[in-house]
Design a protein around this nucleic acid. Structure first.
Lengths: 139, 139
DNA sequence: CCATACTGTAACTATAATCGTTACAGTTAT
DNA sequence: ATAACTGTAACGATTATAGTTACAGTATGG
């Protein structure tokens, strides 16, 4: 499987919200955000669905509605964004059934999972230190 | 894009070579390895092509030929395996053209790349510490 | 020296994941 | 009421990856 770009789009989207918030804009519509990302508004709304579940954004429905950050950018870590939109870790194991006569084949899944967990932990540590504010301040 | 499983297959393949080497087996054919991974022999040979370029394995052609490790398992780090088979880092940025009027859109690529590099560095550090021997010893 | 069993690689097809689109129901402001 | 939004389902398009077929090249061993 090719790697997901959901995380990068999520960071982009939240950065737009954070950036405009600084300029006094309270609500941003999904189609405005879609313009910035250069994609379809529905793609943004689907992503927002995940970000809402993670309580990173809130929305106002109806006319003149839109999206806004649920917290201050300094209180949103990239790690939270990551886990909100990516279900799997950074390394993915192949999922073929094992070949019973081979001990390596039988044990591979478990062994790889341990490596995978360790890598995910290191990634989480890096992302935990960075907040959305750190990103927004660069614009 | 769905995430690549090339790394996990590469670790599996090299583990098979390392494991059998311990049992005195000098050469393993691509179809034997394919059985263990539960895939096609050509998939293995294509992967081996990358691993040969990285000088992690060698091959003997012709009848009774096969593949073998170029170095001892203790001298092969998971980091080397990773960079041999994965061209991109663990985080991938979306590649849409930017929307010129939006500063976030214009700057996003560069900003995300910095995060990406930092994450890749952390992953490399973890993988560098682990060798193929550490993996093989678990079987 | 020919049959056999391998590697190496190109070219093509199949499959699956993701993205994008259409459509429409629900909600709120004016 | 109408217009402008969000929310979500369903479907189609696109793309990445895996798998397959085919065959040339190479070494071994009878």
């Amino acid at each position: 499987m090719a790697e997901s770009t959901r995380f990068s789009v999520a960071v982009h989207v939240l950065s737009v919200l954070g950036y405009l918030e600084q300029s006094g804009v309270k609500l941003v519509s999904s189609s405005q955000i879609a313009q910035s990302v250069n994609t379809n508004a529905v793609v943004i709304r689907n992503l927002m669905s995940a970000l809402k579940k993670a309580k990173l954004v809130r929305s106002k429905e109806g006319k003149n509605g839109g999206l806004y950050l649920a917290r201050k950018p300094s209180q949103i870590s990239l790690q939270e964004i990551y886990s909100a939109v990516e279900t799997e870790g950074v390394l993915s194991s192949h999922q073929k059934p094992h070949f019973a006569p081979c001990p390596v084949s039988r044990g591979m899944k478990k062994v790889f999972l341990n490596v995978s967990k360790e890598v995910d932990g290191a990634v989480a540590k890096v992302l935990h230190k960075k907040t959305l504010k750190d990103i927004v301040d660069q614009f």
